[in-house]
Design a protein around this nucleic acid. Structure first.
Lengths: 201, 201
DNA sequence: CTACAAGTAGACCGGTCAGTCAACCCGGGA
DNA sequence: TCCCGGGTTGACTGACCGGTCTACTTGTAG
C-alpha cells in the first residue's frame, strides 16, 4: 500500500478539469497522465479503462455539486423561495468565476459531458441521470418546504417543478457558455420563480 | 464541375447524423468519408478542415430548426401562447421519433455540439450562439404577439422571456436524453407558460 | 483536338489513440 | 532472510488521427 495513493485522486482531479475544459473524447490518456504526473502504466493500475475514469469523474462532480452548490444554497436559513433564488445566483457566480479563471464561460461540467456521452455509453448516461436526479430531489424538497410555508400554492407539483428547475438551470448554463455571457444565467434565474408558479413576478 | 456535387451535401448530411449520434471529436474524417461514400482526398477538396465541416453542419442544423421547427410551430394560425405550447409538443415528438429510430433519446444536436465545442473553438462557439439567438428571436416575436393579444401582461419582457424559453427547451432536451425519457420534454414544456408569466397555470 | 479546372482516388505523413506488458521497486509480515 | 503484493515504470502494439500530396478521370469551353 504505497503511501502515494493520492495518484488516483490527482488523476480524478485533473480529469475533472480537463474533461470540462475540453471534452471527454478530446483529452487523451497520455495527457491525463502527464497532468497528474504519473505514468501510463499506473493509469491502468487504478482504472481499467478511460470510461471507468469518467465514471469516477462524474462521482466527483456529484460530490462537489451536492456539498458546494446544493448544501450551501438550499440551506434552510432563509425562506424556501429565497433558497431557489440563491441557487441561481450561485450558479451565476460560478460561471463568472470560471470565466475569470479560464478566459471563457465554462458552462456546467455535467451538461457538457452529458451532451457528449448520452448517446454513447449507456452506463455513463445512467450515472449522469442519477446526478441530475440528485439535483432534482434537493430542489423538490425545497419546493415542498415552499408549499408548506405558503410561498407556493397548495396545488403545485414539487416533483415537476424541480425537474423543470434543473432543466432551466442546465439550459441556462449551456446558453451562457455558448454566448460567453455569465450574466445570462442570472437573467434566466430571475424568472425561475415564475416557472414554479410563485405569484410575485 | 462534376455533376455529383451532391458529394458535399452527402458529407454534411452524414456528418449531421454522426456528430449527433456520437460527438464531434468522436467521429473521424475517415469514417465521415466512408459514410458519405467519398474518398478522403475529396473531403479536403470541399472542406479545408474538419472544423469547417462542423461549421457547415451547424448551418444545416439552423436551417432545419428554422424551417421545420420554428416556422411550423410558431405560425400564426393559433393564438401566441398556443404556439409556444405547440413548440414544446413538437420538441417532445422529435425526441420520441428519434428514440424510435435510434433506440435512444437523442437530445438536441445543437446542445450536444455546444457542450463539446464551446470551450474549444471560439469561431464555432459564436456560430452556435447565433443559432440560439435565432431561436430566441423567433420566440421573442411570438411573445410580443402574446402581449399584443393580451395573453401576457403588458409589463412582460419578451426578450428575457424568450431567452428563458430557449434555456428551458435546451435543458429539457438534455435531461430527456440523459434519462432516455422523451416525455420529460413534454412535462417541462407544460410549465413553460408559467415561466413567461402567463396567468393560467 | 487541346487545355483547363472540377472532382476523384488513395497512398502517405508524423503524430496520437486506448490499451498491454514484463520488469522493477520497496515496505512489511513471516 | 525471503517473499508477497501494491504500486511504478515506460517501451510497445496496432489502429486511427487530421491533413497533404500527386496522379488520374472527366466534363466542358475554346
Amino acid at each position: 500500500m504505497g503511501r502515494t495513493s493520492d495518484a488516483r485522486e490527482r488523476l480524478i482531479e485533473e480529469a475533472s478539469r480537463l474533461f470540462h475544459a475540453r471534452s471527454y473524447e478530446g483529452v487523451g490518456v497520455q495527457e491525463l497522465c502527464e497532468a497528474a504526473e504519473i505514468n501510463k502504466g499506473s493509469f491502468y493500475h487504478f482504472f481499467k479503462s478511460k470510461d471507468e475514469l469518467a465514471a469516477a469523474v462524474i462521482d466527483a462532480y456529484w460530490v462537489a455539486i451536492r456539498d458546494e452548490l446544493l448544501a450551501a444554497t438550499l440551506a434552510d436559513d432563509v425562506t424556501p423561495l429565497a433558497r431557489i433564488e440563491r441557487f441561481f445566483e450561485e450558479l451565476t457566480r460560478e460561471q463568472r468565476a470560471g470565466r475569470r479563471k479560464l478566459g471563457i464561460t465554462p458552462g456546467c461540467p455535467l451538461a457538457n459531458l452529458a451532451g457528449e456521452l448520452c448517446n454513447h455509453e449507456p452506463k455513463l448516461r445512467k450515472k449522469l441521470a442519477r446526478v441530475f436526479d440528485g439535483m432534482r430531489d434537493a430542489l423538490e424538497k425545497t419546493l415542498r418546504d415552499a408549499i408548506a410555508a405558503g410561498e407556493l400554492p397548495r396545488g403545485s407539483d414539487p416533483a415537476r417543478g424541480a425537474e423543470a428547475l434543473v432543466a432551466l438551470a442546465e439550459g441556462a448554463c449551456l446558453l451562457s457558455a455558448a454566448h460567453d455571457d455569465p450574466a445570462l444565467v442570472g437573467r434566466v434565474g430571475r424568472m425561475a420563480l415564475g416557472l414554479i408558479g410563485a405569484k410575485g413576478a
